[in-house]
Design a protein around this nucleic acid. Structure first.
Lengths: 254, 254
DNA sequence: CGGTATTTTGAGGTTTTTCAAGCACTGTGG
DNA sequence: CCACAGTGCTTGAAAAACCTCAAAATACCG
């Protein structure tokens, strides 16, 4: 979008800042976390173009050659694996400040699909350039290792959820997890919009869409949450947390 | 164990070689993969002491401060997560050449427990020293990233298993996966010993011990496998692979 | 406003778990 | 060498959780 000529000097600076890591509201959650100004500038220099995606648009697909990691500037994504039989499993929902594509490093090809759940924007981070920068900015390297490690831990927790929990507990974990992540981003932990369909939730939690719908209805009836379409409010946080932790026992599903 | 004086020159060299990455039979699967001799030597210098563990001994525990990664020299391990309610989920079975402890990088503390399934030996790899080495040996860094990425992908595949597959398919995937990993290590892909108990298998696959037992019996009755205690032979590999891939449909469990 | 996609709800079915019992192997001490 | 306890594994029957199928209700979108 071209600017009027009279604004040439001013707006270029402003938009450059906005498009930089330093000016990004997510930089304390994202890759540049903990970097000093000088190092952030170096990181900024290698960051490729921003890319906007509309809802349901695919960021990358399984089998595509791996070139970039992607940092989410705003919006939400889902990543999913597809097996030989064509069945898919959503492996995560990602939001602003989170990094996409790390599973592709090992095989030089993407190992899953990433799709925008709403209109979103990502920063392309060319991985070979990032690797070059690791040699110059040890802090960046260390933080990158932390991010990858965190992803491993996150997935282990999902395995715990899928392998050991009943439907009610899974759903409570799901809600509490979203709540905590919104809180970390300065949004309300008590009230938020589900950016994904019931079908996506079910797929992620290893349940059918009908089970998810019933859980929503039951949680609502019990007064633990309020639901209006995709807007959810947590009315009884402590109880939901207890359910999620497994402290409180599950009641049967009817 | 002191050597007789007459052997001072000879045996020190041999044992030093045996205890080094270059002399380790796993070095083409492990961290030093792809390094030239010089770089392997550098890696060798930072490797801490070997540690032997007896069956059921714990290598590390959730919450312990993180200092080392561990490379398995021989033996088998399981790693598991424990939630607030004390329920545990086995997140993986690891064998020689595989790396343990990567989930601990992010929080400076171990996020899971690792326990030896049989008498085993690991190399301690002090992580801060490894990080120092990354700056000098870019090949090592790249390979380390691949290993972490591979772990992320592996876990995504387990999520697919736990979230989308029926018991029969889960068990077939489990067997085929073990078979492939033994093949990669030069062992028979058709016949191997299960190092873990039925209970461990069930926990890992999100099933009860009874279900695992029934699956074993049924696979045996169908002639797909032979089982004698913990010794398993895959008698119909193609069919098991088809089951694992989801190409072949599941038969009910009776 | 009409058509489509998504969600909810109900009824019945299947898979897997739970509970209970028995079997088999292992090691120990007499 | 054998009885015995302990542990791990197997098998059966009943129950629970969750899924499938079907239909209705609601939301979405041009």
């Amino acid at each position: 979008m071209p600017q009027p000529l009279t604004y040439v000097a001013e707006p270029i600076t402003v938009s450059a800042l906005k498009a930089s890591c330093a000016g990004c509201s997510m930089h304390q959650l994202c890759l540049p976390m903990g970097l000093d100004d000088e190092d952030i500038t170096r990181l900024d220099k290698i960051i490729g173009k921003r890319r906007r995606l509309v809802r349901d648009e695919r960021l990358y697909q399984m089998g595509e050659p791996f070139r970039n990691l992607y940092a989410i500037r705003f919006g939400h994504f889902k990543t999913y694996q597809v097996n030989a039989a064509g069945e898919q499993q959503i492996t995560g929902f990602q939001m602003a400040g989170e990094l996409l594509g790390m599973d592709a490093i090992s095989g030089d090809r993407h190992q899953c699909d990433a799709v925008a759940l709403e209109d979103s924007e990502v920063c392309e981070i060319p991985f070979t350039r990032l690797e070059e920068l690791f040699g110059e900015v040890p802090t960046l390297l260390r933080h990158f290792h932390r991010i990858m490690s965190q992803e491993i831990t996150r997935e282990q927790n999902v395995m715990l959820l899928l392998g050991n929990m009943r439907a009610e507990q899974r759903f409570a974990v799901f809600l509490i997890n979203l709540s905590a992540r919104y809180a970390a981003r300065g949004y309300s932990p008590h009230s938020f919009q589900l950016r994904m369909s019931r079908e996506d939730i079910g797929n992620y939690l290893g349940l059918t869409i009908e089970s998810v719908s019933r859980l929503l209805s039951r949680f609502k009836k019990q007064g633990w949450i309020a639901v209006d379409k995709r807007e959810v409010s947590l009315l009884n946080g402590p109880h939901l947390k207890a359910l999620a932790a497994g402290t409180e026992v599950c009641s049967p599903m009817n």
